[in-house]
Design a protein around this nucleic acid. Structure first.
Lengths: 196, 196
DNA sequence: GTCTATAGCCGGATAGAC
DNA sequence: GTCTATCCGGCTATAGAC
């Protein structure tokens, strides 16, 4: 039997609720109810709502690192690893069509709230950027590695926003196919051309 | 002297506040203070916060139609008109880096709130989609017109999300250059290839 | 049309018993 | 560690005077 600490359960449920309902709109009562504890007990684990947000971002940073390490081990080459990234859009399409990208939407919300945690939420995107940059560098993209990484990350963010707006699954499929074709064209051209 | 009704001033200020602070986080008091009226007076014009949101979306729909008509008149050809769309990212870059895209972020927020106005907010994106589709069709893109329109709209949404996260102006410039090159490659190939 | 005053609720946060 | 009870403030919304 696995015992999960109340603190961890709070962070786990808060993570989900922040994703599905937004940070601002999620109340202590919502989280307490989801965890199954009283509101008062809450403050034994976290002093403020911002502390929970910090813990949620920590959790996401940790899980993102784990996921990237997993892709690193599974993929035989950088192209396959990048495909693992792209495939996230397909694997998570149902939730993305309902709530968008967990990271992108959090960054957008925290930007508007002018929240101190905005920079740390952006660090999660930074993990993807750096990992993708490393993949493109291994592919031989040289100085273009980071712009290419940012472009693909940006592309996926756009697809997530549009998917949550139009709720169009076929659109996601089209764009993912476009990403894969783009990746093929990059490797075929061996990064000799400047445009994609 | 131009007289603007209190109602219009409420909608105008609410539009700005919803953009810069988010719908949920903006209170009646915030709007009343921005307009310079009392909270009580508010309910003479709008019964609920959702009514204000509806009016704000109406305003955005109207202004978007006006903007698209303007581009239609200014641009000598569809390529130039599409460039007007792309140029929005440059013209509004300061606000986009601070708050993201007004439409994309509103759709994302309303999706999480499971708000009834989500579909109408998406209609604003739909105006861009349909207008861009018409431009690509005039360019001779045929059946690919709508996918191309959705792709460009999606691309711009991704850039807005990333710009608001990383606050990187150079990134916006790179992506806009990429969009322009993509548009050139499309017209040069006269839509004979399937990939971009 | 605009105001003040206020109802009623819910938010985050605290104190203290067990 | 968990609970109940509670405070305070801000929120939406209403009533009614001017």
């Amino acid at each position: 039997m696995i015992l999960i600490s109340t603190r961890d359960r709070i962070v786990e449920r808060a993570d989900t609720l922040f994703y599905e309902g937004g940070f601002e709109a999620t109340s202590f009562a919502d989280i307490a109810e989801a965890v199954g504890i009283s509101r008062g007990n809450f403050y034994h684990h976290f002093r403020t709502k911002d502390d929970i947000l910090d813990a949620v971002i920590d959790r996401r940073l940790e899980r993102t690192r784990g996921m990237l390490e997993g892709w690193q081990g599974e993929g035989a080459n950088p192209r396959e690893r990048i495909l693992s990234f792209i495939n996230m859009l397909i694997a998570n399409r149902t939730k993305i069509m309902a709530f968008g990208c967990p990271v992108g939407t959090l960054c957008s919300e925290l930007a508007k709230l002018d929240h101190a945690a905005h920079a740390r939420a952006t660090d999660i995107l930074g993990l993807f950027r750096d990992w993708l940059t490393a993949q493109f560098r291994t592919l031989g993209a040289g100085d273009r590695s980071e712009p290419l990484a940012l472009h693909l990350l940006s592309w996926s963010q756009g697809v997530a926003v549009m998917a949550a707006a139009f709720r169009d699954e076929a659109f996601i499929g089209n764009e993912v196919a476009g990403m894969e074709a783009w990746l093929v064209s990059l490797t075929e051209n061996s990064f000799k051309t400047k445009e994609h």
